[in-house]
Amino acid sequence: MSILSLHHGDHGIHGDTRSQHPVRDFASDWFEATPAAILLRPVAAFLTEWAMATPVAILVRSLHR
């Protein structure tokens, strides 16, 4: 399972420190403010569980052991 990891926290907006990656910080802040960020984890968890329950995944796990 892959997990999307974004930069969180204060990005130096108030002038305390300069960010080294302003484009990444902007994209991260924008994504966190969208409904997609709210839906991403539950949808990813559902799809992961669904994929693990398919007959092919069960067969691959049983052959791997």
Results as ranks from 00 to 15, higher is better:
residue 1 M to H: 14
residue 52 M to N: 13
residue 65 R to A: 06
residue 60 V to G: 10
residue 8 H to M: 11
residue 51 A to S: 07
residue 19 S to C: 01
residue 22 P to V: 00
residue 29 D to N: 14
residue 63 L to N: 01
residue 60 V to H: 05
residue 21 H to F: 08
residue 44 A to R: 02
residue 48 T to A: 07
residue 45 A to H: 09
residue 59 L to T: 01
residue 22 P to R: 08
residue 55 P to G: 08
residue 52 M to V: 04
residue 10 D to L: 02
residue 60 V to Y: 13
residue 48 T to F: 04
residue 39 L to M: 02
residue 20 Q to H: 03
residue 34 T to A: 03
residue 58 I to V: 04
residue 34 T to V: 08
residue 55 P to E: 10
residue 63 L to S: 09
residue 29 D to G: 12
residue 19 S to P: 00
residue 4 L to N: 06
residue 44 A to W: 04
residue 16 D to L: 06
residue 61 R to M: 10
residue 15 G to C: 02
residue 60 V to E: 01
residue 10 D to I: 00
residue 5 S to D: 15
residue 45 A to I: 07
residue 54 T to G: 07
residue 18 R to P: 11
residue 12 G to T: 01
residue 59 L to M: 06
residue 20 Q to S: 08
residue 49 E to N: 13
residue 28 S to I: 00
residue 36 A to F: 08
residue 6 L to A: 01
residue 20 Q to K: 01
residue 7 H to L: 15
residue 61 R to H: 04
residue 14 H to E: 10
residue 42 P to H: 08
residue 52 M to S: 13
residue 45 A to M: 00
residue 10 D to Q: 11
residue 20 Q to W: 11
residue 65 R to I: 06
residue 27 A to V: 06
residue 31 F to V: 01
residue 62 S to F: 04
residue 49 E to Q: 13
residue 55 P to F: 12
residue 13 I to S: 10
residue 49 E to F: 05
residue 43 V to C: 00
residue 2 S to P: 09
residue 5 S to C: 15
residue 43 V to Y: 01
residue 65 R to Y: 05
residue 19 S to F: 04
residue 17 T to S: 09
residue 28 S to G: 06
residue 39 L to H: 11
residue 46 F to Y: 10
residue 7 H to K: 15
residue 38 I to D: 03
residue 53 A to R: 12
residue 43 V to H: 05
residue 40 L to D: 09
residue 1 M to N: 14
residue 3 I to C: 12
residue 33 A to R: 05
residue 12 G to V: 13
residue 50 W to K: 09
residue 49 E to W: 15
residue 51 A to I: 00
residue 16 D to G: 00
residue 52 M to Q: 14
residue 63 L to Q: 02
residue 40 L to H: 03
residue 31 F to C: 02
residue 4 L to S: 04
residue 21 H to K: 14
residue 12 G to Y: 06
residue 16 D to C: 05
residue 3 I to P: 09
